[in-house]
């Protein structure tokens, strides 16, 4: 009994963790690229990256279903390795990551665009490679935005429902994440189980907000009046 109604928590945690890791790297790479890209296709690419945010989640879910389904291009690709994505645990990760991506991308891009090019130029004249500049100058200076982006992405994947339901379905113990479990618990009249999951979500959400506030207090160079000599 205990196991079964806490199962959605473990599924959600694994899903959210994996989805956040994926969106973190993909979102940062896309954001960094677009922040300094000024080609003709800029607004088009930008639009594609933000699309999951403006479309209804079920529509995105349907799109993913077509993409990863038996006859979809990616579904066909995975079937070569005897793997089916649809209605499996990885499907929860994919839908959560896709839905969280625009938030990660937009917030991080805003942060990178705020970084004065002269910081990067200074590093260039000091002989640093572009890779080193990104990790030691651009990313640390844009860190507040990147952290905010990660927290938004984390929260968005934790709350993901529509696309997940379309692509991963509701398989208890396998693809039923917390939001999906809450919905089906209430449908089935298990109000008490739903409430426990609701409490858990509240705790996780407040803990991440608290973590963010604590981190902000601790950053030495974001506090101005720290003169101590």
């Amino acid at each position: 009994m205990t196991e079964s109604y806490l199962a959605p928590l473990w599924i959600s945690l694994r899903t959210v963790l994996a989805a956040t890791v994926f969106t973190f790297f993909l979102g940062i790479a896309a954001a960094r690229w677009m922040a300094r890209y000024s080609g003709r296709l800029k607004s088009l690419i930008d639009g594609v990256f933000i699309l999951p945010l403006v479309l209804p989640p079920t529509v995105v879910g349907l799109g993913l279903l077509l993409l990863f389904g038996k006859h979809g291009p990616l579904g066909h690709f995975f079937s070569l390795f005897d793997t089916t994505i649809v209605f499996s645990w990885p499907a929860t990760v994919i839908s959560a990551a896709v839905m969280a991506f625009p938030l990660m991308y937009m917030t991080a891009r805003g942060g990178f665009e705020q970084v004065d090019v002269n910081f990067e130029n200074a590093a260039r004249t000091l002989g640093a490679s572009e890779w080193r500049i990104f990790w030691t100058v651009t990313l640390p200076i844009a860190r507040p935005a990147v952290i905010a982006a990660t927290i938004l992405a984390f929260a968005r994947s934790l709350g993901e429902f529509g696309a997940t339901l379309m692509l991963a379905g509701n398989i208890p113990g396998k693809t039923a994440t917390i939001p999906i479990a809450i919905y089906f618990d209430i449908q089935a009249g298990h109000m008490d189980q739903a409430l426990i999951l609701v409490m858990i979500v509240l705790v996780i959400s407040f803990a991440s907000l608290g973590g963010l506030a604590y981190w902000k207090l601790r950053m030495p160079h974001t506090t101005s009046a720290a003169l101590n000599e």
């Binding site: 004065d116 002269n118 910081f119 130029n121 200074a122 590093a123 004249t125 100058v137 640390p140 200076i141 860190r143 160079h221």
Partner: peptide, 12 residues
């Protein structure tokens, strides 16, 4: 060597 107008010291 380049010294920028706003110095561009790495704030972090």
């Amino acid at each position: 060597g380049f010294v920028f107008q706003n110095y561009a010291l790495f704030p972090h």
